[in-house]
Design a binder for these strands. Sequence first.
DNA 1: CCACGTTGATTAAACGTTTTACCAACAGGA
DNA 2: TCCTGTTGGTAAAACGTTTAATCAACGTGG
Lengths: 325, 325
Amino acid sequence: MANIKQIAADMGVSVATVSNALTGKGRVSAQMVARIKLRASELGYRPSLAGRALRSGQSGILGLVMPDLTNPLFPRIAQHLSLAADNRQVGILIADSRGNPDEQTQAINRLLDRGVDGLLIVPQKGTTPGLQSVPTVIINTASDPDNTVSADHAGGGKLIAEHITALGHRHIVILGVDRVSEVQRDRVEGMRMGLVTADTVLELWGEDGMDQLAGAIKNGATAILTTSDLMALRVQSHLIRCGIGVPNDVSLTGFDDLPFGLAMHPMLTTVAQDVEQIAKVAIEHLMRAIQGEQSQEKNDKIAMRLVTRDSTSLKRNTTSLETIK
Amino acid sequence: MANIKQIAADMGVSVATVSNALTGKGRVSAQMVARIKLRASELGYRPSLAGRALRSGQSGILGLVMPDLTNPLFPRIAQHLSLAADNRQVGILIADSRGNPDEQTQAINRLLDRGVDGLLIVPQKGTTPGLQSVPTVIINTASDPDNTVSADHAGGGKLIAEHITALGHRHIVILGVDRVSEVQRDRVEGMRMGLVTADTVLELWGEDGMDQLAGAIKNGATAILTTSDLMALRVQSHLIRCGIGVPNDVSLTGFDDLPFGLAMHPMLTTVAQDVEQIAKVAIEHLMRAIQGEQSQEKNDKIAMRLVTRDSTSLKRNTTSLETIK
DNA sequence: CCACGTTGATTAAACGTTTTACCAACAGGA
DNA sequence: TCCTGTTGGTAAAACGTTTAATCAACGTGG
C-alpha cells in the first residue's frame, strides 16, 4: 500500500514531481522520471483509483445493464465487452434488470449512484430506456432512435434466406418465436427480402406455428427458417416424431449460433452474431462520447455471418415424403 | 451534483452535522436529522462514492473473475451474484480470464488495481488461484482447500443415479466429458455411490466413449448417465441414428439443466444447480470475511435438485431392441 | 548588466467524505 | 456555587491524487 507521498519522501522530492513523473505530464527531467518509475515499481506502487476519481470526477468505470437470462448471448457479449474495456483501462460494473422494466431503471440508478462514467444497456424486450445523465450506448436492439450498436438482424435473415434459395428451395416456411420482439421481427423482415425469388413463403409464429409445420410440408414446403436456434432444436425433435428427416426431407436453419447447435445431429446451419465486433464498437462509441467527441454515425449495424453446417442441403427433386404420398 | 457542503451551507449548519445526520452516526437532534434528510432528497443528493471510498479505504466493490464462456452457468451465476450484491449495497466488477491461467492472474490484478474489497473467483479448469491480498471466495470448484462454495456435484450424481436405479435399471453406462475436470470426476464419483445396487457399471469418457455406446446397449445396458446436458444432446442424436429410442429402449440423463433441455424431445431428465443459493452463500461468506469476521465453515456444498422429465422411464422387461435381436 | 525565456521542481489548493477532538450550553447533585 | 455529565453541534484533519500557480536557477541575446 505504497502511496505517492511515501515515494516522494523516500526520494527527497515533492509529491507533485512524483505524480508528474508517473503520469508523464508537467515538466520533469528524463533521469528523474526514470528513477521515480524504478522506485515506484520496486515498492509495488498502485495508484489509488479512489483518489484519482475524486480529483478528476471520473470513475473510470462503465455500467453494463443486462436483461434476464433468456438472452443466451449475455455471457459472450459481457466477455467481449470486458475485454474491450480492459484494453482501455476502464472497468465494467454489472447490473441485472431481471426481466422487468422497473428493475431496469432501478439497475440504471444503482449504477449512476456508483458514479459510472457511461452506460451500456441491453434493453428489455420492447423497452427503450430514456435519455440518461451520462453517455449511453444501447446494444442489440434493432430500430432504436439514439446511439445504438446492434447485430444486423435483418441482414442475417437475408443471408440465410439467400443461402436457402441458392440451394434451390422455392417453398419456404418462416417460423418466428415471438411477435413482440423487435429483433425477431427484423430477422423475419430480412428473410423475406432474401426470399424474393421464392414461390411461396408461409410466415408462422410461436407454438401454433409449430403445429402447422407438418401440414405445410405436406403441401410442398422444403425449408424451414427459424429465428432462433432453440426453436430449431424443437422443430427438429418435432419433425423426427413426424417421420420427417432433416435435411433429407426438409432443410432447417436456426439463428444465433448457440453452442448446442454443434451437438445436434445433423449439426445446425445458422447465422452468428459478431459479438466481438459489437462489443468493440460499443465501447468505442461510448468512450468517444465520454471524452466529449460527437460520433458522426449514431447507429451502427454489425454484419452477421452465415454458418453453413449439415441441416441444410440441396433441394431434391423427389423427396422420400413424395414417394410416401 | 449536490454535495454535502452545499447542503450544509444551504441549511446554515456544518458539513459534519450533515454527514452525521445522513449516516446516522454522531449526535444530531432528531428534528435536525429530519430537516437535513428532507433537504437532501429535495436536492437529489447522491453521496460521492469516490469521496467515501477515499476516506474509508473501502470501495464497496467486489471483483468477479469468470473463466471462458464454455461454462454455460456463467450468466445465471453472474445474475444471482449481482442480485445478492445489490441487496448489500455493493457493486460487482467483472473480469474475464479467457480460458488461460495467466490471463486469470492478470484479471485478478486488474481488479485489485481497481481497489475491490474482495474477490469472487470461478477458477479455470484445474487451476487453484493462490491466496490474494483481499478476502476471496472460490466458486464451484469441488475439492479446493480454502474458502469455497460450490454445488454438491457428487450429491447430484448420486441423486440421478438413485433415480435411475429406482426405475429398475441395473446395467448402467456412465459417460463423462473430460477426465481433467475435477467437477466431472466428482459427478462420476457421486453416480457410482448411487449405483451400489446396480449389476454392471461401465464408465466411459469423451468421444471414444460415445462410439462404444451402441455396443454397450447391445450388451444389455438400459440407462446412460452423462455428466453434461450438452453431452446428453449429442448422445440422443447419436442414438437416433442407431435406431435406438429414448426413453423406450434406453434412459438418458444430463447434468446442469441448461435451457435447451426443455426444447429436446423427449425433454431431458437432468439435475440442476441451485445457482441462486450458491450466489447468496458466496456473497455472504465474502462480506463476512471483509468485515473481518471469521466464518466457521470454510467449505460449503449446495445441494443439487433432480429434474425429472421424459428421457428416463421404467426399465421394460422386453425392449424393442431385444425383439429385434 | 539587464530583461527574458526555458527548464526543473515545489507549494498549495481542490475533489467529497468521515471522524476525532473539541466546545458551548445546559441541567442536576452536592 | 462548583463540579460533572450530557446533549447538540463545530472545526479541522485525513484519505491520495492532480494541477494551476509560483519560483529558483540558468543561460542568452541585446
